[in-house]
Design a protein around this nucleic acid. Structure first.
Lengths: 146, 146
DNA sequence: GCTTGACTTCAAGTTGACTTGAGCTTTTAT
DNA sequence: ATAAAAGCTCAAGTCAACTTGAAGTCAAGC
């Protein structure tokens, strides 16, 4: 397949595919002149990358998984990530409850509501840098091959 | 309190506090000479900002909440965010299950495992740009520079 | 055989949330 | 009184994951 087909099938722009190739996350099987050729399984690979990204892996981490040295390193890593997700999920659930409570809370200021303040403390424990914004409107879903 | 106290109490570096002030997220109550003075409630405000960040709000969104025009705009926004978190949580749970499964799966390649492939499809639906990495090791809780 | 448009490379730009550095001023401890 | 420690401002740098732009190449259709 050429890059346009992969782009269409995966929903990712060609620039991203080139970028991923440069990073070593995918490979092109060869060239037709200048043009990259991809085998069909790159689509699954891209889906796997998507999965990883959605689960919070960085591209570098995903790259490490693909090239992991032993056969078991992977598994340990996967389990560790699963545990991490468990924690994240718990925290997000607490946040969600806090938000819902805040939305109906009658206290004049949230700062005067003990429930809310308890939430703040949870959030405080969970303080991590959260980078920038998701741009959901940028992704045009459903673009499947014509 | 002076900025160092706030930094200590909140766990945020002074540079971040200045940055937040510049963005209008917190206010200093005045100056002692050059130096900013903060009232104690800035701590709670910062905790609230932390909560918002953890829940996925951008600083701009948090700023809007603080200065929201009507009293109900806030609530709708909070509920919407809570719903968003619900979806996120569901997806993360699916990821987690997928990771756990992948870790024990006997299939020679994950691509040959139907369970795993089902996961990929979920991840595919959920494809959104996920920005960059959390740096959890960067935050030294309570660690203060001498 | 020539245009055209999809592809190429490489460098630089974008975004959000900060951080860092240079060069000053002020407070505080000796 | 003086020097170090802590603050200050403002500009520029950083990071991840891409995107964009310029300038060139080339396969294919007419």
């Amino acid at each position: 397949m050429d890059i346009a087909e992969v782009a269409k099938a995966s929903g990712l722009p060609a620039s991203t595919l080139r970028f991923y190739e440069e990073k070593g996350l995918i490979q092109s099987t060869g060239r037709n002149g200048l043009r990259r050729l991809f085998s069909a399984n790159v689509i699954e690979r891209l889906a796997l990358i998507s999965l990883g990204r959605s689960a919070g892996f960085s591209l570098d981490e995903i790259g490490e998984m693909f090239t992991s040295e032993g056969p078991d390193i992977n598994r340990a890593l996967l389990l560790a990530k699963a545990d991490e997700l468990d924690r994240t999920i718990e925290e997000l659930a607490a946040m969600r409850d806090g938000l819902r409570h805040a939305a109906v809370c009658k206290a004049p200021s949230h700062f005067e509501c003990p429930k809310f303040l308890r939430l703040l403390r949870i959030a405080g424990k969970n303080r991590f840098r959260q980078p920038n914004k998701l741009k959901e409107n940028k992704l045009k879903r459903g673009g499947q091959k014509t």
